[in-house]
Every structure is written in C-alpha cells, then in structure tokens.
Write a protein that binds this DNA or RNA. Sequence first.
DNA 1: GTCTATCACTAAATCGATTAACTAAAAATA
DNA 2: TATTTTTAGTTAATCGATTTAGTGATAGAC
Lengths: 355, 355
Amino acid sequence: MKKKISIHDIAKALDLSATTISFVLNGKAEEKKISEDVRKRVSDYIKEVGYQPNMIAKSLRTGKTHIIGMLVEDISDPFFSCISRGIETIAYNHKYKIFFASTENDTEKTKALIKVFRERQVDGYIMAPPAGVEEEIRALMDDDIPVILFDRYLPSLNTSTVIIDNFSGSYQAVKHLSENGFSGIAFLTLNSEQTQMHARLQGYLKAIEESGCQPVVQKLPSKLSHELSAEMVQEFIKQHDKIDAIIFATNYLAISGLQAIRDMGLAIPDDIAVIGFDDNTHFNLFTPSITAVAQPIEEIAQEVVRQLLNALSNERESRIRRMVMLPVKLIVRNSTYPKVKKKIVHSEPSTMKIN
Amino acid sequence: MKKKISIHDIAKALDLSATTISFVLNGKAEEKKISEDVRKRVSDYIKEVGYQPNMIAKSLRTGKTHIIGMLVEDISDPFFSCISRGIETIAYNHKYKIFFASTENDTEKTKALIKVFRERQVDGYIMAPPAGVEEEIRALMDDDIPVILFDRYLPSLNTSTVIIDNFSGSYQAVKHLSENGFSGIAFLTLNSEQTQMHARLQGYLKAIEESGCQPVVQKLPSKLSHELSAEMVQEFIKQHDKIDAIIFATNYLAISGLQAIRDMGLAIPDDIAVIGFDDNTHFNLFTPSITAVAQPIEEIAQEVVRQLLNALSNERESRIRRMVMLPVKLIVRNSTYPKVKKKIVHSEPSTMKIN
DNA sequence: GTCTATCACTAAATCGATTAACTAAAAATA
DNA sequence: TATTTTTAGTTAATCGATTTAGTGATAGAC
C-alpha cells in the first residue's frame, strides 16, 4: 500500500518548493515565470507517480468545493431522475460534481439536508423545494450562495427559477379533450399548495370554464403508495359516473390511475379518456398509448445549469435573478376518439354538471 | 452577510480554547473531563449562533469524508435510479452522503470518474462497473479503500459483490414460456460481455436446451437510442417468422422491443409473447401487462450498503470479501396464453436442476 | 509536608493545498 | 560601473478543524 503523495513530497523529490509545484499544477507557470525546464520536470514527475491533488485541502484553502447540492423530491421518480441525469452531465462538463438527495417533499428532512450541504460547503444549490424552507433558502441567499429553484418556486422568495408553463399544459389538455367530444373531464391532483400544482389546476379550471362544462376536481393526499392511490382513484371513478375523461396532474398519479382503470376493466378511451402530466413514463407504450403533457426535460436541465453557472461566476451585486418559464407540449397519442362523431352534441351543458 | 463562524471564534467568545470546543462538539466531554458548566456554555452558544462545523476542514484532518462514490450506468434508468434511491436513504441514515455519476458503460469515462472521486477522497465506492477498469479498482483495493460491486462483477477481481441470480431469471422465463406452449422463444440481448448479460444468456440457453427447442439469440449493440433499437427489433422479428416469444435481457431493450411490436401491429401474447428483465418500468400497466423477471431492488440496496459499512468499519485485514447472489422472481402477468392448449408435455422434471 | 494523581483544561502541530510577500541572482538600463 | 528591473523562484501564513502532549491547580496519600 503506497501512501498518498502530496505536493510537498513532489517538492522534496524535485528539490523545489511546494509553491512552484502549485503554480505549475494550476497553469500559473507562465504568469509566475517558471522556467520551461522546471515545468517539464514537474509535469513529468507528476505523470510518473500518478499524483492526484487533494481536493479537500484545496477546498479548505480556496473556499470553493466545485460541488453543487441538488435536492429533488425523489430521485427514483422518472421526471426527477431524467432531469438529474441531464444536470449531472452538463455540470460534469463544467467540472462541477453534484450531490443528490431526495427530500420526499418533507420540510424537516429538507432543512436537515440543507444543513448537511452547508456543512460540506457546496458552492450552489438546485432545488425543487417543499414549502416551509423559505428561511433556510433566504439564509443561503444572504450568505451569497447561489440557489436555483426548478419545477416549482416559493412565492415569497426572489430566487432564480426555471419552471414550465403548467397552466398552459392542463389548459391544452382540457381543450384537446373537449374538442374531441368529452364533456365530463375530471382533474385528479394532489392535495398540495405547490406552485406547479396550483398552476395546473388553474389551467384546468380556466379551460373548463371556457368549455362550458362543470369542473370535477379531486385532490388526493400526497405520499400515498401506488396501491392506495389506485384504490382512491377507483372510488372516485365509481362515485362520478358522469365523467368520461381524467387528467392526472402528475405522472405518479397517472400510474396509479391507470392501475385503477385497468383493475376496473375500463377501456381507454372508450370508457374513459386519460391525459397524463409529464411524459417520462413511456406513455407511448401503453395500449392504447396515453396522451400526455410533455415537459422539455433537456431544456430545463440546460437552463438550470446555465443560470447556476452564471450565478457562480458573478459577484453577488451583478447577479440577475430571473424566472424562466419553458413551454410544454401536448403529445397527442390517441387520435381515434369514440366520441368525435357526437361532438358538440352537448346542447345542454347545464345537465352535465357532475358534482 | 454574516461571515461563517469557526471553532476559534467560539473559543474566543467563550474564553476557552478551540480544543475544548472540539471535545464538546465531538462528544468527548466526558472522556476529556470537561466540566458540566463549560459543556453547557458551549452547547448553548453553538445553538445560539447556529454554528455549523466545516466538514472540509474536518475531512482534511481526519482523512474521512463520509462520502461514498457511486457509479452506475445511467442514473435515469429506472433500475439504477431505484437502487440509488434505496442506497441514498440507507446511507444517509448512517451519516454517509453519496456522489452519483453515470458511467454510460464507458471505460474511459469511468476511469475519469474514479480519478475525480479519488481526488475528493471518497471513503468508499459502489459501482456497476464497465469492463476495463480492473486496474483502477485494484489500485483502490491496494490503497485499502472499500469497493462494492453490484449488478455485475469483474471476474479477475476479488471484490465484495452483490448480484442477482440472472441465470435463474432467464431460465425461469424460458420455462414459463415453454410450459405455456411457446416453442419459438428468442432471446434479445446486448452485445456485451458483462457478467450479468452472460449469465442471462446462459440461463436462456440451458432452459432452451432442456426444452428441446432451437435457441434464437440476437445481440444488439449497446448505446443505441430507443428508436434505433426498435427498428432493429422490427427487422429481427421480420426475419424470424418462427418465433412466437421474445425474452428481453434488459428493461431498456424491452421498451424498444415493445415499441417495435406496437409499430408492427402485433398482439401480445397472441402474435408474440414477451418477457422483460427487471420490473421497474411499470410493466403491469401495459395492456396486456407484461411478465417480467423482478429484481429485489430493496434487498440489493440493503446488502450493498451493509457490505460497504462493514468494510468501512473494519481494518483491511479483517475484511471479508464476499459475493452475495440474491434471488429473482418471475412476475407472471399474462396468464391467459393462447397456446396453452398445445402445451408440450414436459415429462422429465428431473431436468429441473438449475446448477 | 512532600509527592503523586487527578482535574480541567490549553498550546501547538498537523492535514495538503494556495498565495501574499519576499529574495538572490541575472539582465537591462543609465 | 552603479542602479534598477526582471527572472525564477522561496518562505511562511492561512483555511478550520483534530489531537498529542503538556500545564497549573487542587486533592489525596503517606
């Protein structure tokens, strides 16, 4: 077991000072007028012994870790894992590493994670925050540590943020369904006040209002297992026999919902049409395939990293915080709807109220 | 912007030495006979000013980072993201953080990542390694750094390893199909020499041999997009009109394959039966739902962390390296097979020995 | 009354880098 | 030639913790 070699070992071996080695290592040879000869001796020796600088020591001295802390709801959720992958790749290309952690949308857990990340001196944060961590985030900003939010934001905080046009997503979904003859369009969402969920609901309500139909909204508790949510969706469908379409506000809910629909032996879209939010669950492979509101994963990742790198490279005063809203796209998969023929037939939409 | 406070600031404020603060902080107050009074003053003050120790400094001094480096093929793959989530949770409970990175199965990228992790002095490694990094892993082991492999292993290396019974997985899959009357059972795999792929192929071949059918094996290049693999699967199916069932050796392939089958307008299982490997892609929601070989994700995560923590807490000499093989489970989803009637009479159950 | 043990701490070295300030020798300038 | 400037480095402080070795004061033993 060879022991780790340090910059001083190199200095000793080459009969130079650690300073000189450091200069060569950090590309300051030119600037610091280190001779060609010494430069070469140092780089050759470093290659020969396979020297690896100790980033811990470097970080302690410089105050920079080149680590980004990333807090997502659940790293095993397809949406978050895809975003993470994109961010990981881009960040690594810029010599930044990422610490991932799952918040489970739990305020206390998130606070604890922020504390851990602070202790580790991460250079910046990327978060899909739960409510209730405003204080901690403000503290980060006060200490001049860049924070980028995504997926959702905290209204009381002026942070850089990357979100998608959730309102438009569910608005388009409703429009699509009503244009295809559906009139009992329900919206299944989570009992959550997060901004993205709120916008999705508002988009639904706006479009429903415009279509003249009655809104049917069901909020499920978050953190339910798929089994439990599926049961509740079944219950919901049974109690609302007028609905002929459901929009699921998250992919997790869509999975549970599809399970419920399958368990009930209902046909999609003949018995009930379905639209999912977020298209990372291979909705194209279901039979029939499922229409979904697709989020631009790659663009979100790019924009998040761009903003973070920008914040990291600028002094606090010159930092511009901005909210970027990226467009969504409705991926229509089920074009042959059974009701298309009897479209517009609902001459008396008032009777259609389902509540 | 309040500046960070250090252990020396505390010492100064309380008119004590940094040593004393450190002792109290690290629970050595008892052992080092620090008075009740001082202990309380220190802890009160720490709480009051919200002191957060600098782990970078701590790591530099102690040589321990309490960080685990984890290298997976692709963090956005459902299998790896679920494993990662499990490992993350358990590790955090033991005060370890995880660095995740995706190797893309690329040898050079993996070497670079190992180098980065070494520079950051991670305490241990969890890897699903590509071939060709034996040297680097051996170097880690030589330097007494724990390494746990999972999903696959490197035959030339005596490492701690957690794998699943891949052989049995595809063996069971073939048996299931042949018992249900299928005789043209193809095996679609990757052109990879990794141990898990090899074992899956061997299990398939053994079972096919026992069933008296002809093996049909197709190896696709890895790193293809879903679109490209789907095309190749289509091509494959068209060229082999005798096959009535396909076993996909990875979930990524299964997704591509299902796309191909859908594009060709084939019915599952009437035209072609399908079994997937790994059950994290919600195969239960496809119509008809897809039978799959399920890996025990939770158990894998637990076993990996258990082995790593064990290695981290023991001196090198007392470390036992061992390979743990966890069982898989065939999740039968499509019980109503069209061909069940013409089931072949397997009169010799003695052939059931699996090795 | 001296000697030793225990108590309740502290001083200073250390981990491995970076960096501001300095210096001896060589080269350029006056 | 004397002086200044440049070259090619070096010394030592520093980042914020841990930890070994010690210290002065008091208590107890004989």
